[in-house]
């Protein structure tokens, strides 16, 4: 079972191991390296918000855990070629509503869309593309959670005198 402490520790290890793959320590990071670092920070913060969301929204616990795990998978995309410093950015939130999760996901999607115009690295762009596609699905799903189901036009209601068969 993943908890917040494990998450923060593991993201630090991921970033450190990435640094070890290339000896960026001591040299000035390139814009691509900074971009990857930013992605790691944002994904870590999103996972943290999901922990808070799972605390608050018990009825959607299973679905939210699934979405949180997707962000953990997104984090692993960056580990092979990253030059990030271990700097997770926990939000400090204890609880979060689905609307807060939705806003955080929308912000991340916007970041993905703008970031893809700042690099020409094919692998980074592919990662951003897959993450953006996943986040689009998250936004759609979270919206479904907070949108009450609309009855069909021909729905019949108990006690209604409309359309009843007598």
């Amino acid at each position: 079972m993943i908890n917040r402490r494990t998450l923060l520790a593991s993201s630090s290890v991921l970033a450190l191991s990435a640094c070890a793959n290339r000896s960026f320590l001591g040299s000035k990071p390139t814009s691509d390296e900074l971009l990857i670092q930013e992605f790691i920070q944002r994904e870590t913060a999103l996972v943290d918000i999901y922990f808070a969301g799972i605390n608050q929204e018990r009825s959607f616990r299973t679905q939210l855990q699934e979405l949180r795990d997707h962000h953990l998978v997104h984090l692993t995309l960056w580990t092979k070629e990253v030059s990030a410093t271990p700097n997770p950015s926990p939000t400090g939130l204890q609880v979060a509503s689905i609307t807060q999760l939705l806003l955080a996901e929308e912000e991340h999607l916007n970041f993905c869309k703008t970031s893809c115009l700042t690099t020409n690295d094919v692998l980074i762009l592919q990662n951003i593309g897959q993450i953006a596609a996943s986040i689009s699905q998250h936004i759609y799903w979270l919206n479904k959670m907070i949108t009450p189901a609309t009855p069909k036009p021909n729905a019949r209601y108990e006690g209604s005198d409309i359309g009843g068969e007598q």
Partner: peptide, 30 residues
């Protein structure tokens, strides 16, 4: 760069259609 946003949008729209076809979200679509 001038063409990227439009092509990416095709991928994002496809990701939504997967959910419209009664499937659950995927960690890494594509």
């Amino acid at each position: 760069k001038s063409e990227r946003s439009e092509t990416l949008q095709y991928a994002l729209d496809g990701a939504i259609r997967i959910l419209e076809f009664k499937q659950t979200p995927i960690a890494l679509p594509g």
